[in-house]
Structure formats: structure tokens, C-alpha cells
């Protein structure tokens, strides 16, 4: 919809100030996209695929093609037929065609689909670098929340076609630095809870292991640690428990069936 493949049911989309319906060619000029799997012409070589897409946009020099090829690290295989590429290589070729014309906005739909862990990481680092070095805005849609948490600065959650929430990932972890849930791994849970009670802080045993969970800020954590050590309770580890995007997502959407 954002790139004009489907007609809009309502509202308007503007990219760089141009309406996608009325000034399609100007709007799309600044956009690069990979829609689902990066489908390329399998009977052409990677290089021919890039030539193909370069011809559709004015002023793409051969040097730019070489540059992009180097950027996505396909140099050695670029003249082989796409048929022989692995999924990761096709994905990289997909990225190459999307950034060929130096777009201001890069739209990726499920970019990590079918990639191996190394490929996912590579793609993520690469996208981050692109956003930083070339100043490209990147718009990603995905259902892999953990991946999005690592990849994005801001997330928007859409449920049943309605925008539920937009939030910044960084900001949210800063907020939580103030007071959040900490897990203490201790040698003697009963003793530790007793010490906590004496200090006037409710604590609970954390189910599975020899650990207790506390709501606390940084200062309190240090104080508790000192109290445990004084009271003869061995502390093996302290860690902060942060809510993952997934938890927040389920909270927000009420854990309903998402279709």
C-alpha cells in the first residue's frame, strides 16, 4: 500500500511531501523496497538484475552498481546466475537493488524471513550502518518481536488494522532504569527473605531456582546486597529483569488471537 501496489481504502500517504496517489513517480523516487522475499530474475546474473533495476532510474552509474555490490558483499558471485544463490545472498541482492538509487526511505517487509542466524545478524548490522552512514530512514514490518527489538529505534504496533501504539525502544529501557524488577540469586532463600522483611521490603521467592525477586531502583539494589552479605547470605548474582517487547506486545493487545 505504501508503495502504490494496492489502492488505499482511506486516508493519504505522503513520502517526502509527495502524495503516493497523485504524484506517484515523485513519491516513489525516494523509496527503495523489498517486498517479502527478494524475488529476482533467477535466469539472470546478480549483476544483470542490478542493471535491470538501474535502468529504471535515471543517472545510476556503473560505479554506483559496483559500489553497492561491494557494500552488500556479493563481489565474488555477482556474475553468477541468481538461481545458484543462497537465500541470504538473494536477500543481500534484494537490499542492493533497494538502495541502488540512494533512497531516503527504505521499506522492508519481513526482511529476516528465511535467513539463518548469521544472516539475520549481518542484515541487522548492515541496516543499522546504512541508517547511520547514509541517513536513510528504514521502515520494517515484521512479526518477529525479539528481532525488531534489536533492529529498531521505534516500534508501532498494529492490531486488526488499527494502530495501537508507537513507542521508542531506547526510551523505554531508560524509563525502566529507575525502578524495575531485580532477581537476586542467593544461597539461602528463607534467610534472605527474612533480611528483606527486616528492612521493610516485600520480596518473593522466584519459583524455579534459589532466587528472590524484588522491585527496586539502583540504590536499593546496592543496599540490599550489602545487607545480604552482612547477614551471611551468599549472593551469586544480581540481574535486572526487563520486559521484552513481546511481553509488552501481549500486554497491549490483550493476548488476543492476532490474525
Amino acid at each position: 500500500m505504501m508503495v502504490g501496489l494496492m489502492s488505499l481504502t482511506g486516508g493519504e500517504i505522503k513520502i517526502d511531501g509527495y502524495s503516493i496517489t497523485k504524484q506517484y513517480q515523485k513519491a516513489i523516487r525516494n523509496v527503495g523496497a523489498i517486498v517479502e522475499n527478494p524475488e529476482m530474475y533467477k535466469y539472470l546474473s546478480g549483476y544483470q538484475n542490478l542493471i535491470h533495476f538501474a535502468r529504471m532510474i535515471p543517472d545510476i552509474s556503473d560505479e554506483r552498481i559496483e559500489e553497492v555490490v561491494k557494500l552488500v558483499g556479493l563481489g565474488a558471485r555477482i556474475h553468477d546466475k541468481v538461481r545458484t544463490y543462497s537465500l541470504g545472498m538473494r536477500q543481500r541482492l534484494g537490499v542492493a537493488q533497494a538502495i541502488l538509487h540512494r533512497p531516503k526511505l527504505l521499506i522492508l517487509d519481513e526482511p529476516t524471513n528465511g535467513l539463518d542466524p548469521a544472516g539475520i545478524r549481518e542484515l541487522r548490522d548492515y541496516l543499522r550502518q546504512l541508517a547511520k552512514d547514509e541517513g536513510i530512514s528504514i521502515f520494517v514490518s515484521s512479526h518477529l518481536l525479539a528481532e525488531m527489538e534489536l533492529m529498531c529505534d521505534r516500534v508501532a504496533i498494529i492490531q486488526n488494522g488499527k494502530l495501537i501504539d508507537v513507542r521508542s525502544i531506547k526510551q523505554q529501557s531508560d524509563d525502566q532504569a529507575e525502578s524495575r524488577r531485580f532477581i537476586f540469586e542467593v544461597g539461602n532463600v528463607v534467610e534472605a527473605i527474612a533480611i528483606m522483611a527486616r528492612l521493610g521490603h516485600p520480596a518473593e521467592a522466584d519459583g524455579q531456582s534459589a532466587a528472590i525477586a524484588v522491585e527496586a531502583d539502583r540504590e536499593l539494589v546496592a543496599k540490599l546486597n550489602a545487607a545480604f552479605v552482612e547477614g551471611g547470605v551468599s549472593v551469586y548474582g544480581i540481574r535486572a529483569q526487563s520486559k521484552s517487547l513481546e511481553d509488552q506486545f501481549l500486554e497491549m493487545t490483550g493476548g488476543e488471537q492476532i490474525v
Partner: peptide, 14 residues
Amino acid sequence: TTGTIKLLLIRPWS
């Protein structure tokens, strides 16, 4: 069939 139509249409061409 191959899905390349999507890549083809999102170019500055009518």
C-alpha cells in the same frame, strides 16, 4: 508468478 512484479512496479514509472 515469480513475484518480481512488485519490484518492477515500485519504480518511478507509470
